[in-house]
Amino acid sequence: MAEPVSASAPLAFAGNRFGGGSALARTLATPGGRIGARFGLVAILLLTWQFAPAGRATQFWLSSPSLIAGTLWQWIADGTLWVHLGATLQVMSEGYVAGCAAGISIGILLGLFPRVHRVLSPFLTGFYALPKIALAPLFIILLGVGDASKIALVAITVFFLVLTNTIDGVRDVDRDIIQSLTLMGATRMEVIRKVLLWAALPWIFMGMRIAVRYAFTNTLLAELIGANRGLGFLIEYHSGNFDITGAYAAIVVLVLCSVLMTELLTRLETRVSRWRH
């Protein structure tokens, strides 16, 4: 239910059904007008930020867009940005792949053996309710401060998500289809291979899609708690040193990264669903 709406939904308000509408509405009715309005808004905010008169204390806490831009430029130039961004992406992808692989395979198994699933269900619910970030200290003790503990955290988070969706997918299969194939003489393996896996695929994909966001979030959180590399580390490090500009710069990178990732994911999804239909 909390899926982002497309940024270009039709305008139902530019004039009500009897015509008319304000000047603002008319401006916004054109795509150029809309983009202009947004840029205008952002520009006003930035300019106010940069040039608003403020005392020394406020200046300290607020920093300014120019300083932030400067820091970012330096990071790009001397490579810091790529090192940390790369570290985050690497941990995120390794944890994601591990979690998906485990989640899908065990999910299929539990889907095929509903009684085992029913027995395990309360234990799974319990683990699901635990905020995974709380496991971070435990993993750091068990696996050290390096990548392993972070990858483990991401993997476990992704695992539970993908597991739930995979199980639902396997169980959602139309029983009548299975019956028809059984009557035709299909063995259990053949039913699994030719029906169950295919029917569960949309659910599995949905789980994998949702899991990307959680993988990203938990990688960052793990880096906040205990790391020496990565985007989360950047935020924590600069905040800890009261380096406001640095902290803001790191956040800008975070925002850009998040938006880019979501956009890529949405496009990938549209392409995949087009192929399926």
Partner: peptide
């Protein structure tokens, strides 16, 4: 802007 912000994991701003 809202959709863009929505994609950012806000919890990671905790240190700020």
């Amino acid at each position: 802007i809202i959709v863009g912000l929505y994609s950012v994991p806000l919890v990671s701003l905790a240190p700020l």
